[in-house]
């Protein structure tokens, strides 16, 4: 599988990453090489093999329903790029 500049641009948009035009060919080359490496998987017969999402065969633990978190807005918003009246500000969201 090899990716061209147009495909790289499409993936970059999906991932919300601005890539300079002059860098696109290099990314396309690198990504294609990685996909070639990855394609070695095709050689393996995985018919009937259960996918493994986690190393350990454990089940999800459940937490008691208790509201215990204090309000730390001031601390959290001290590291925010832009806030006003307790809200995080972003360029206008158009619906």
């Amino acid at each position: 599988m090899s990716l061209g500049p147009a495909e790289v641009a499409k993936i970059a948009h999906l991932a919300r990453l601005a890539i300079r035009d002059e860098d696109v060919p290099a990314y396309a080359r690198n990504l294609s090489a990685i996909l070639e490496l990855v394609a070695q998987m095709d050689a393996a017969d995985t018919t009937g093999v259960a996918p493994m999402a986690h190393p350990l065969n454990m089940a999800q633990r459940l937490r008691p329903d208790a509201a215990a978190e204090p309000d730390r807005r001031e601390r959290f918003q001290a590291i925010a790029p832009q806030v006003e009246a307790g809200l995080y500000l972003v360029p206008k969201v158009i619906e």
């Binding site: 832009q82 006003e84 809200l87 995080y88 500000l89 972003v90 360029p91 969201v93």
Partner: peptide
Amino acid sequence: DFHGRSGIDL
């Protein structure tokens, strides 16, 4: 009105 911006409440 947040000067043409949107405010996010989480």
